[in-house]
Amino acid sequence: MQISFYVILVLILLWLAFRYYRLEKKIIRAVKRNFDMISAIASIVDRVEGYNKDHAKEVTEIALKIAQKTSMASSSEQLLSLEMASKLHDIGMLMVMNDLIKSRQSLRGDHVFLMKIHTLLAENYLKQELGLTDEIPSIIRWHHERWDGFGYPDSLKGIQIPLQSRILAIADSISAMRSQRNYRRKQYKTNEEIITELKSQAGLQFDPNLVNITISLLEKEE
């Protein structure tokens, strides 16, 4: 009697384990599909912005490498949020006039203001879809803030800017430096040139602590 009880118990456990294994596989497949879909959307945004490469993908890779060297490294949830935000950081550009995005000249006055709202448009639309508990829209909102308080949209200063947004700002800039951009005369070809630029912007545009981390990562790459 007792033996048959244990046999049944083992069988039930085996069945549950099998069901769990299949469910997990399904979830992993669904998550991967969602990730691929987000990457595809990010790629469309890259083309709209006039990038000749997978800018969002590059930004994501750089951002995650930097994040692994910070206090965020132990939080898989925060890393996932940063990954998603990095992929979708410029999605607001889809709602900005094409003429502005592709302008070959430096923007001025109202045009600058219109360009600046792309972070807010992204935040607003994502907030509606993701709900009130998700931090991804906020990370995107602040990826153009500057450490010295002269960024946009809120002119936040220093550690007022959440860490993920500070990381995203550096990653976005490095990827942009490595690309051909219409509005910029100077092109940064080597890591050495990028390091020089990062150093010059430490304390101005970027968090100096993150600049140190990024420089050591770039030096290892060489």
């Binding site: 450490w147 010295d148 150093k199 010059s200 430490a202 304390g203 101005l204 100096p208 602590n209 600049v211 140190n212």
Partner: peptide
């Protein structure tokens, strides 16, 4: 004030001032 702010941060993190 802005210049002071820039110097204080750069000195704190050991960056040579590029400007």
């Amino acid at each position: 004030y802005q210049v002071m702010n820039y110097w204080i941060i750069n000195n704190k993190y050991g960056f040579e001032n590029a400007l």
